[in-house]
Nucleic acid binder design. Structure first.
Length: 425
RNA sequence: GUGGCCUUAGCUCAAUUGGCAGAGCAUCGGAUUGUGGCUCCGAAGGUUAGGGGUUCGAGACCCCUAGGCCACCCCA
């Protein structure tokens, strides 16, 4: 451990150079959330461990090995082990939906949030212990249209962020009526070739056979010959899946069917989807994912209510944007206020007046030589400098165009209009 | 949780066989008795990630720890 304080493992500081891209991504997410008529919610960053165990599943990786436990300063050992930082947002949103009786509101309900998620995993580029997701959830909408709508929304998000080469992977893993048969077929199939499975897969074969398909080390021949969930769908699930596909086709949304896409969280039913970006052949190419969870509300003690949602990783979206050379949004023209005299009161008054007029102002509070102040202004990226000095009369200041190297004396009240009129903003 | 490669100034990197820890960029100041970017000059910036060992002597070699990256695992 270094003597100087360091950020905890797997976390990082996001500095101004990078926050420019963050602003763009966040504003796209906010704007789309609003345009698609989602309503903003916030839930706690930590919840009871039991909530995640009951929703994501005891055998899911996030519960089994990636839970970030929170210890209280006081209390018994048991009490201190009771909470965990949220590894995903759906459980908290569904918990809030049930707790506040939101089912009485006219549905379907559409929620969104942007927030930090936590997974105690081994860090790597694009994989952090604290990361940020944009999450959208729809509760109480059983029809296939919302499935297609969410996938279209996610693809539009990537497009609006400027990311290209994003592919939607799609699958249906059925529901309580048809999945048991699929599960049985998987067990029967893999049990015969158990000696060709990894240790992990052999264990999963007993406790959660669908996730054998998740295993990237699975022999390609075995994977190709494995039972496919869509061949086992019951009639309602098959109709739902067919409808989702034809809706996506009708929208012109491109996707590929991925028979091995079963998702790591147990609450998913029917539609599952993930978004991958081209160019990262190894890991961290998954930018986001989601699916339908028609049994989750009931499993957590609420009335039977369908649900569907996605979580998109903003860190990875930004990483993809940076790799694709996408420019961050430009700031508005910056005006530096510098002083030819040491009269700081006059300088600060000018700053305030300009800000009231809507100008973006960076003041120089030093009494350095004017040349130094102008140099600092130019280095800070200022397009203009307002020089507050004694040689000007009354309310007048000098407005200097730092790019052109030209300046003029004019009344303070005319500065904002002059900048706006130059078209250089 | 497993394996591999790494860590020298704020950043990018040098340092011969184990022999005085350096450069460029960035920062600050001066040239500039108050109008910037260029140029020139100068200053500051280091317990070489942390700890231990070998040695007359370690940035370099050995061990431990921490962190980063990569491949697994899994996902966002």
């Amino acid at each position: 451990m270094a003597r100087t304080p360091a950020a905890p493992r797997g976390t990082r500081d996001i500095l101004p150079e990078e926050t420019a891209l963050w602003r763009r991504v966040e504003s796209v997410a906010r704007e789309l959330s609003d345009r698609y008529a989602f309503e903003r919610v916030e839930t706690p960053l930590f919840e009871r461990v039991e909530l995640f165990a009951r929703s994501a599943g005891e055998t899911s990786d996030v519960v089994e090995k990636e839970m970030f436990r929170v210890a209280g300063a006081k209390g018994s050992e048991e009490e201190r082990a009771e909470w965990a930082l949220r590894p995903e947002p759906t459980a908290g949103i569904v918990r809030a939906y049930i707790e506040h009786g939101l089912h009485v509101q006219p549905g379907p309900l559409r929620f969104w949030l942007i927030g930090a998620m936590f997974r105690y995993d081994r860090p790597q580029a694009g994989r952090y212990r604290q990361f940020t997701q944009w999450d959208c959830e729809v509760l109480g909408d059983p029809g296939p249209m919302v499935d297609a709508e969410l996938i279209e929304l996610a693809l539009r998000f990537y497009a609006d962020c400027g990311v290209t080469g994003v592919t939607a992977h799609l699958n249906s893993i059925g529901d309580g009526a048809c999945r048991p048969a699929f599960r049985e077929a998987l067990v029967e199939y893999f049990a015969r070739v158990e000696d060709r499975l990894t240790d992990d897969s052999r264990r999963r074969l007993r406790i959660n056979p669908l996730r054998v398909l998740d295993d990237r080390r699975l022999d390609p021949d075995l994977a190709a010959g494995a039972p496919r969930s869509i061949d086992f769908l019951c009639e309602p699930c098959r109709q739902h899946f067919d409808a989702v596909r034809s809706l996506l086709d009708g929208l012109g949304c491109r996707y590929v069917i991925d028979h091995r896409l079963v998702r790591g969280l147990d609450y998913y039913t029917r539609t599952t989807f993930e978004f991958f970006v081209a160019g990262r052949e190894g890991q961290q190419q998954a930018l986001g994912g989601g699916g339908r969870y028609d049994g989750l509300v009931e499993a957590l003690g609420g009335r039977p209510t369908t649900g569907i949602g996605f979580g998109l990783g903003l860190d990875r979206t930004i990483m993809a944007m940076a790799e694709q050379g996408i420019e961050p949004p430009r700031d508005g023209a910056l005006v530096a206020v510098v002083g030819a005299t040491d009269d700081l009161v006059a300088r600060l008054r000018v700053c305030t007046a300009l800000r009231e007029a809507g100008v973006r102002v960076r003041p120089d509070g030093s009494t350095r030589k004017l040349g130094k102040q102008l140099e600092a202004a130019a280095k800070a990226g200022a397009r203009w400098a307002v020089i507050v000095g004694e040689e000007t009369a009354g309310d007048s200041v000098v407005l200097r165009d730092l790019d052109a190297g030209e300046q003029q004396e004019l009344p303070l009240a005319g500065v904002a209009a002059s900048i706006a009129g130059s078209g250089a903003a």
